[in-house]
Amino acid sequence: MSKKKKDEIIEEVSEEIEDMESEEIVETEDEEVETEESQEEEPEEEKDDMNTKLLRLQADFINYKNRADKEKTRIYSSAVEDVVCEMLTVLDNFERALEAPDDNGSFKEGVQMIFDQFKQTLEKRGLEEIDALGATFDPAMHHGVMSEEVEGTEADIVLEVLQKGYKIKEKIIRPSMVKVSR
């Protein structure tokens, strides 16, 4: 509901309250004579009803505004998350290109500069890499695809990261694909 619409409704309610206050009860010969006390109670009750309606309208508007703000925030977060998820494959391909052997060092330097710029842009939007290597395996953050028995190592320790995992703020958008010790 727009502010203009809210102001119009408030103005209408205020006018009705003023009208009720200014109304005079016209008594005819056939009607019983009302006491002053009952004459004052009726308009007062109607005034209270109108005030209650106005307060409820204001509360409804505030609730609507809060819901709209929450929905806007949720939609924005979801949109950022979707775009970042699509760009993770590009980030992975950059990393693979940087790991490939290169006879010409200038090509690799150019790709490295593009990669750094791309990664900084994603980090500005809240992207964080999940540090997995050497950490205890957490199924919420890691996707175990291989396991290996290693002497001298505790069980459920991440030995190798096969694909990096990422999160935006505290929400995991892609778990790390890892090799875990048994």
Rank of each mutant, 00 (worst) to 15 (best):
V145H: 05
M177Y: 09
M87G: 03
D131E: 15
K53V: 09
F137K: 11
M113I: 07
D131S: 12
F107P: 00
D131L: 13
A59P: 01
G165F: 06
I10M: 06
A155W: 00
R182L: 07
E71N: 10
R74C: 00
I172T: 15
V111A: 07
M1T: 08
E32D: 12
V145M: 11
P43G: 02
I25M: 10
E95V: 06
D103Q: 03
A100S: 04
S38V: 12
I173D: 06
S38C: 04
I17W: 08
K47Y: 13
M20K: 11
A97F: 12
Q117G: 13
K119S: 10
F61R: 09
K164R: 14
V26L: 08
I62R: 07
I114N: 11
P101V: 01
I17N: 02
R74F: 04
G110D: 10
I168H: 02
S38L: 10
E44G: 02
T153P: 00
L98D: 01
D30L: 09
M146Y: 13
T121I: 11
I130P: 13
A97G: 10
D103P: 00
L127I: 08
R182S: 09
D82C: 00
F137H: 14
L91Y: 15
K169G: 06
E37I: 13
I172L: 12
A140S: 10
G144D: 03
E40F: 07
M113K: 12
E45L: 15
D48P: 02
I168Q: 03
S181C: 05
E81A: 08
E149F: 14
E41A: 05
V145D: 11
S2W: 00
I75F: 01
I9L: 14
R174D: 15
A68D: 07
Y76P: 00
E99M: 06
L127R: 04
D138K: 06
G134N: 14
Q58F: 05
E170R: 14
E23I: 11
E42C: 01
I168Y: 03
L91R: 13
E42R: 11
E34C: 01
S77V: 02
A68K: 09
Q112V: 00
R174I: 05
L54W: 04
E160M: 13
N63P: 01
E16L: 08
Q120A: 15
D7T: 01
M20Y: 13
R182D: 09
Y64L: 08
D138W: 04
L127F: 13
E71W: 09
N104Q: 04
E86F: 06
I17T: 06
P101N: 01
M146L: 14
A140T: 12
G134R: 13
E170S: 14
A100D: 07
H142T: 07
S14C: 02
A155V: 04
K171A: 10
I172F: 10
S147H: 12
D156R: 03
D92C: 05
G126V: 03
V111R: 03
S22A: 14
V33S: 05
S77G: 02
K4V: 09
G126Y: 06
M87L: 15
V13Q: 04
D19W: 10
N66S: 09
K6F: 15
T136S: 11
M20N: 13
E123V: 06
S2T: 15
I9S: 01
E21H: 11
S77R: 12
V26S: 07
M50D: 04
E149T: 14
